[in-house]
Each structure stands twice: as C-alpha cells, then as structure tokens.
Amino acid sequence: MASHLSTKDRLLSLIDDIELIAKEIIEVSIAPKSQKLSAADHAQLTDLLLAKDVELKKTLDLAEEQAKIQQKMNELKGEVDNKDQDIHHLQRQLKDAEQILATSLYQARQKLASIVKSRKRPVSSEELIKFAHRISASNAVSAPLSWQPGDPRRPYPTDLEMRLGMIGRPSDPPVNNGHTPSTLNELHRSTTGGVPAPSTNQFTWHPSGELHMSVGGGNSVAIDGRSKDAHTQEDVEVMSTDSSSSSSSDSQ
C-alpha cells in the first residue's frame, strides 16, 4: 500500500502519525488517574511511537537516496536538453541543405529540358552564322557608322519593318512619315498579297561574307523607289524578305 504513495506523502503521513501518538501519550499522562490507560496500553503506545520514529528515519534515508538519484536525473536532463539543441541545429542545417538541393535540382531539370529541346531541333552553326549575318547586314543590331539623320537604315524596327511584321499587318492605317504611300502599298502587297513561294526565295552564302538573295518577280522594285543608295537597297531587300526567309529556315 505504501509503495503507491510518493516518499513525500509517506514522510508527511508518518509525521502526522507521530504527532497523533505523541498527543495521545501526553493527553493520557495529563488525564486523571481514573481515565488513565493501563501500563500495557501505555507501553504499546510508546512502542508504536518508537516504531513510527524508526520508520520515519528509514524513510528519510530513502529520501536521501532519492535526492541522489534526482541529482543524476537533473544531470541527465541537462544532457538531454543539450542533445535536443544539437538535433534542432542539425535539423535546421538539413532543411537548408534540402532547400538548396531542391533549387539546384529544379535548375538542373530546366537545363536538361532545354538540352532535350535543343537536341530535338538542332540548329547548324552555319545556319546561325547565316542568320547573324543577315541581322547585322540589315542594320538590325546597330546603325551603320555613316548614319545621318534622314537615313532610313537603322536598327529594328523601322516603320517599314513594323508594317511588314505581324503587328503591322491586320489593320494599320498607313502613316505618312515622309515615305510615299505608293511604294509602301506596293511593298505590302509584295509580302502579304503576292507572297512568293518560299522556294522562290533563295539565300546563297558566299565565303566572302556577303549574303545574296534573289526574290521572285519584281518585288524589289518597290524598295528601289524609296532608297537611292544601291547598298541600302540591297540591305532593305534582305530586311523585307526577313519574315519569309526566317520561316523557311524554321521549317528545316
């Protein structure tokens, strides 16, 4: 029965018992002779008091042992708390690592996807150089060194290219910017209405670095009327057929 109680409760109940027995003994001692207990009862009470006292001392010894165990437990608890902190620290580091790995995995997957994409549709370096030359030849990257105000050659987009592009096509009212409407209309017709078949457009690459292109019909005439410089004319010719030629290169 006593084993279920905590040591503290046992000690307190023992003190209660001792107090009760001591009071009883004192009361019996004070009481008149008629009410006094027999010697045997008195001895029994005294024995009980002594027994309780012995038990109290024993329980106090037990309490001392438990205090030692408690001290060890406190040390253990401190160590457990330390380990807890270590574990939390490690967990935080692992979480950081996971995040970094996840980001790099995502980036690597993107890179792999673009590698797969590029393998599916390989572009030859020759084609790339050809395209780069075409862009630079048409002053798409930078204006020519000899550029002067009024010179129609300039980096993209000029009004002309805007009109020839997808945005310019559906319904753009022609804006008079110093160009003659007749030449613009004609140009427009040449690319939208009377677009020559891609097979009729031919790029020829010469090792000298020049790009030549022959367009079917007399479509280049329209640009002729707008620009006076022969070199410029050639450039614009290339630009005007840009959309069709790029589509032909895409289809390869």
Partner: peptide, 17 residues
Amino acid sequence: RAQIKRLPGIDYNKQDQ
C-alpha cells in the same frame, strides 16, 4: 512538514523515480 516539502526528488516513490 515544511522542510520535508522542500526535499528534492521525493515527489515519486523510488520505483517510479
């Protein structure tokens, strides 16, 4: 009684402890 309440490690019996 007050002193016993201040003793450490006796909130449980030895077995539980």
